[in-house]
Design a binder for these strands. Sequence first.
DNA 1: GAGTGGTCTAGACCACTAG
DNA 2: TAGTGGTCTAGACCACTCC
Lengths: 240, 240
Amino acid sequence: MAKYKEIAKKIKDQIQENEYNIDLPLPSQETLAKEFNTSRVTIHKALQFLVMEGVVFSRQGSGTYIRKNTFNEPSLDLDFNEHIGLTQRASKKGEISNKIISFSVRFPTQEECEKLLINKNDPVYDIIRLRLLNNEPFLMEYTIIPVQVIPNITENILSSSVYSYIKNDLKLKIGGANRRISADRPRDLEIQYLECDATDPMLEVEQVTYLSSGIPFEYIHSRHRYDKRSILVHSLYNDK
Amino acid sequence: MAKYKEIAKKIKDQIQENEYNIDLPLPSQETLAKEFNTSRVTIHKALQFLVMEGVVFSRQGSGTYIRKNTFNEPSLDLDFNEHIGLTQRASKKGEISNKIISFSVRFPTQEECEKLLINKNDPVYDIIRLRLLNNEPFLMEYTIIPVQVIPNITENILSSSVYSYIKNDLKLKIGGANRRISADRPRDLEIQYLECDATDPMLEVEQVTYLSSGIPFEYIHSRHRYDKRSILVHSLYNDK
DNA sequence: GAGTGGTCTAGACCACTAG
DNA sequence: TAGTGGTCTAGACCACTCC
């Protein structure tokens, strides 16, 4: 791991173990540079990294301070600033399991071609899964994956984690995702499987995920029970 | 403005004007460094900035490529990666106006004290506004602002933009925000003002906004008509 | 092996904050 | 005015990709 990330991790750990006074600035970059036996630029980069994670914030001329975050208690939140897949993410809160509702191969729709940057003759997997936490259903996921990009998907893989198949078996890296979040009414399938009422709102996340090569590899609609899920986002503003 | 941000802006403009072949990598960092008459570190920083904005992505050993984004057509999206306030943000799409439903001063609740890091004796503004695009209501906003942090708020300011009052008149900088997004049923007030049905889902954003000094200055619940609003987020993954 | 992006250094200067 | 973080440089080495 890069030195600046290691330093960032150490500082973060120290913050979480209350080794710094939360009301005072951290030691200056110069002090930290001596402490970690490195250059100030590297310390600056480490702190920058923590700024992006929302752990600290810096004020030119004043110092770097610990950020007192607001939404960190919660129950079943999905934090887009944590960079891990759903399975690992939610497993902190309990036992995640998957139920495969359907699994097939077909040709893509026009919209799927556009989102996944493929041709209409490139077959895609069409997967519908129900996801449960401690055996309680909380989300339905409609997944489209191009066969040529992620080949040889099996029911076994779908029951555990597609992400670890991609990372560990195919040795591919995941680069990022674009998401659109909205609210909607439930469909019949969701009323049935999520055991919710026809008047219950749904929280929908529409998402295209990319490999680090820039190739999109999945187009997902996930629809969440509104009472079991919320999404955390934190933003920085850079404009003057 | 910092040199690396100026360069980032120029490169971004060039990309948007199709001055680069979208399927080929950008010129190498070394080439760009010569072109912009600067060091490679500065070019690297500029490209890093564009990576964070989701404009390009880099692959070690290969090059830096233009990202073909997926959700950029839309109608009334709120993009958390654009760093501007609602008023400017949505004004691209039409005429934004505000209707003040109520405006008062009171002592904060326990929860408001915790989110805003204030004491129970520090008065807060309590503001309810209806926001309209082209005279059609699309969101209701419940805002709590500590009087001591943002003093002298008037109905006039509320009708235009609190953010520009903070930036232009008070000369304060906005640092960032934490948000929680969820879905919910509408309340009576929303059914009335947003002209929606009791069974319509609502998209809710709960948000604490900070000044660049780290002091929280507003705690907002905004509740959006589900058919008029979605939220865009883009994420990068850094884990190996 | 040649070319690419990622990281690191040491030193410098600047912009800003606070006493 | 002293101390802080923000930026920039020139040069170096490494890890990775692609031929």
